[in-house]
Amino acid sequence: MGAVMTTPGPARATEDTWMFPPGDGWTFDQVKHLELPFDWELVDGVIVARGQAKFWHNRVRDRLMYALEAARSEPYEVVAEQCVMVDDRNTPKPDVIVFDPRKLNFFELECVPVEHVTLVVEVVSPGSRQHDRVRKPALFAANKVPCYWRVELDRDRQLAVHEYWLNADTRSYFPAPLHSVHHGKLITEMPFPVEIDLGGLVGF
Rank of each mutant, 00 (worst) to 15 (best):
R59M: 06
R59I: 09
V60Q: 04
R61Q: 12
R61M: 12
R61N: 15
D62R: 08
D62A: 08
R63W: 08
R63E: 15
R63G: 07
R63A: 09
R63V: 11
L64N: 04
L64Y: 02
L64T: 04
M65R: 13
M65E: 14
Y66I: 08
Y66M: 07
L68E: 01
L68P: 00
L68K: 02
L68R: 01
E69W: 12
E69Y: 12
E69A: 11
A70Y: 08
A70Q: 11
A71H: 06
A71Q: 03
R72C: 06
R72D: 02
R72M: 13
S73R: 09
E74S: 14
E74V: 05
E74N: 15
E74P: 06
P75K: 05
P75I: 12
Y76T: 06
E77W: 04
E77M: 14
E77D: 13
E77P: 03
E77N: 13
V78P: 00
V79R: 05
V79H: 00
V79S: 08
A80G: 05
A80M: 10
A80Y: 02
E81Q: 15
E81M: 05
Q82P: 03
Q82F: 14
Q82M: 15
C83V: 06
C83F: 01
C83R: 04
M85H: 12
M85P: 00
M85A: 14
M85T: 08
V86W: 01
D87R: 05
D87N: 15
D88L: 08
R89H: 11
R89K: 15
N90D: 04
N90I: 09
N90Q: 12
N90A: 06
N90W: 08
N90K: 07
T91D: 03
P92V: 04
P92C: 12
P92G: 03
P92F: 03
K93P: 01
K93W: 03
K93T: 12
P94M: 05
P94Y: 13
D95Q: 09
V96H: 00
I97A: 01
V98L: 10
V98R: 00
F99R: 00
F99G: 03
D100F: 07
D100E: 11
D100H: 04
P101L: 04
P101F: 02
P101I: 11
R102E: 03
K103F: 11
L104A: 11
L104Y: 05
L104D: 10
L104F: 14
N105R: 15
F106Y: 13
F106Q: 11
E108I: 05
L109G: 03
L109P: 02
L109K: 08
L109F: 13
L109W: 03
L109I: 09
E110I: 05
E110M: 10
E110R: 10
E110C: 05
E110L: 12
E110K: 09
C111Q: 07
C111F: 06
P113C: 14
P113Q: 08
V114F: 02
V114P: 00
V114C: 14
E115N: 13
E115S: 15
H116D: 09
H116N: 15
